[in-house]
Amino acid sequence: MNLLTRFKDGLQRTRTQTFSKIGAIFKSGKLDEDSIEELEDALLEADIGVSIVDDLIEKLKDEFANRKKDKNLSPAEILKSHLITILNNRHHTGTESCQVLTPNTTRFSHKPWVILLVGVNGSGKTTTAGKLAYYYGLQGKKSVIAACDTFRAAAVEQIEVWAQRGGARLVKQKSGADPASVAYDAYKSTQARSEDLLIVDTAGRLQSKRNLMEELGKVARVLRKHDPTAPHEVLLVIDATTGQNGLSQARGFTSVAGGTGLIITKLDGTARGGVVVPIQSELGLPVEFIGLGEGVDDLHPFDAKVFVNAIFEE
């Protein structure tokens, strides 16, 4: 099943549950009070957030009134193109409080290439670690997963299963061990065996817990000791159902561990994951991957167009 079909599937199911009656209005070329409200509602219900939605609607009104080139462009099309522009912007430099490390080098330009996975509890980091190993395994890369969630009960047993599914070697220590020390060991052995990719899975934590965030900072610093450019990617794993707190998550995690991008998980439900729009527009963190299910092959590179269409698709 291709990506778009899956999205549509999810949306269809939503429709039958009769929440948003998004319909013909998106195809119509009119822009009146009713159609504005419907467009606005669709954006809000996708978790894009009030401020950005206000901006987008203002822009839409302006452009719609002044459009010259293409008289056939529908309001929905105008909105879509704005959203795609935001999501595809890779020229951000981040903000002062967030060290956004936009990767200016190509993937795997260092060996091992190090990906640090961070996020709140239950966002899907462990599952994603296994899927990432599988994804890059298909491209012939040898992966290692560092089991740095030494806190949660049975987290190591869980990642063991996912490492196996993803075809990755697992580096682990006892439950309760220092996560930075696991990361250190993992890097050394990955380098010694000259494997391509090190995926560092960390414990879920809420960004407001200062001590836990400092612990995460330490994991990043330990990796940097081996290779000053590591971790090469810091990916924040966000549950698609997350509301506006996603922005706070992005700010919190990037300020301690840096950040290069996002992974949205659980997009196979009815949530649209629209909070990535304000995150991208404020912090410049692009979405790299999306998770669409519980299978090991359910991780896909992000496509802004498909994603945006899903917000408006019938």
Binding site: T14, Q17, F19, L44, E45, A46, D47, V120, G122, D239, A240, T241, T242, G243, Q244, N245, G246, G269, T270, A271, R272, V275
Partner: peptide, 18 residues
Amino acid sequence: VDGMTGQDAVRSAKAFSE
């Protein structure tokens, strides 16, 4: 229910309770 849930909260809660 995850306390950080956004707009989807009504959709999933409704589906479960139905």
